[in-house]
Computed example of a mutant assay.
Amino acid sequence: MNLQGKWTLVTGASSGIGEQFARQLAEKGSHLVLVARSESKLNNLASELSKKHGIQAKVIALDLSKESAPSELYQQCQQLKVDIELLINNAGFATHGLFEQVSGERQHEEIMLNVAAVVSLTHLFLPSMLRRNSGTVINVASTAGFQPLPYMAVYGATKAFVLSFTDALSWENRERGVKFFAFCPGSTDTDFFKVVGTESASVGKKDTPERIVKLALRKLAQGKTYFVPGMQNYMGAQLSRFVTRKQSLRIVGGMLKPR
């Protein structure tokens, strides 16, 4: 996948996995549209990457959990006259705890960001990729998408949606010039668990964003349609193939139960 001089849009680009996508793609010569809520962090990153790699980096500060935000983002890209070759739907967050005790407003925002924004942005940017017969969409799912998650019920359901959605579109577009790739990391050393508000939602050894993004880009270049980094994560994602649904819920629920 040659991105030299082409445009990549990364949501959730101010830190963690999104920031690593931006850094590693800038190194490959891709221009960037960086999207997140924190304008100051995005400006610092854009300035650094532009100077270091000689690429263009545009900053769009938006809260993609707001219903109108995806269309606003698309319109701003149109005004900037950038054709997005690689769309990375990375922005997302989780909630943790007994379902009825977690803020309903916060869970609604979670669904809007993790699901609705992914669908809307894909729907908005896909047609131009199809017209060019060229483009790629990376949707960041999670190992959470492979089985229900007691105490993180909404998050697990959103990531199951992203995984199913991406797989379906990968098949639909397999002969139309556009690739779809579901990236499914496990516990990663980012601010994710600070946002969740608990470390008890962390399962297994944390990987580094640098390593897993590098591996994801390699797997994408090899033509894979999804990727789970780490053998432990991969085996965990396959858990439902080897145990009953009730057993899976008991195991995962035991891991995630609030302490």
Rank of each mutant, 00 (worst) to 15 (best):
258 P>S: 04
127 P>S: 08
217 L>K: 06
155 Y>S: 10
190 T>L: 11
33 V>C: 05
249 L>T: 05
92 G>C: 12
212 I>F: 07
165 F>Y: 14
34 L>N: 10
44 N>T: 10
248 S>G: 15
101 Q>E: 06
37 R>C: 06
37 R>A: 05
98 L>D: 14
223 G>A: 03
78 Q>I: 09
211 R>S: 15
208 T>V: 06
136 T>Q: 11
176 R>M: 09
153 A>F: 10
142 S>V: 00
218 R>S: 14
241 R>Q: 05
27 E>D: 10
110 E>Y: 02
74 Y>W: 11
64 L>C: 09
201 A>L: 12
216 A>E: 08
130 L>N: 03
230 G>P: 04
253 G>I: 13
237 A>S: 00
1 M>I: 12
102 V>E: 02
89 N>W: 06
209 P>L: 07
220 L>F: 02
192 F>C: 04
126 L>I: 01
100 E>L: 13
91 A>H: 03
198 T>C: 07
126 L>C: 00
75 Q>G: 05
70 P>A: 09
101 Q>C: 00
212 I>R: 05
57 A>N: 01
45 L>R: 07
55 I>D: 10
83 D>T: 04
122 T>V: 07
53 H>I: 09
234 Y>W: 14
163 L>R: 13
205 K>E: 14
147 Q>W: 10
182 A>F: 02
57 A>D: 02
49 L>M: 06
152 M>W: 01
203 V>P: 02
101 Q>Y: 02
161 F>A: 00
80 L>E: 03
144 A>N: 00
36 A>E: 13
42 L>R: 03
38 S>E: 07
199 E>R: 12
130 L>C: 04
185 P>H: 05
201 A>K: 09
138 I>C: 01
119 V>L: 08
29 G>Y: 11
11 T>A: 10
36 A>V: 13
197 G>W: 03
244 T>G: 15
166 T>N: 08
138 I>Q: 01
236 G>Y: 08
81 K>I: 10
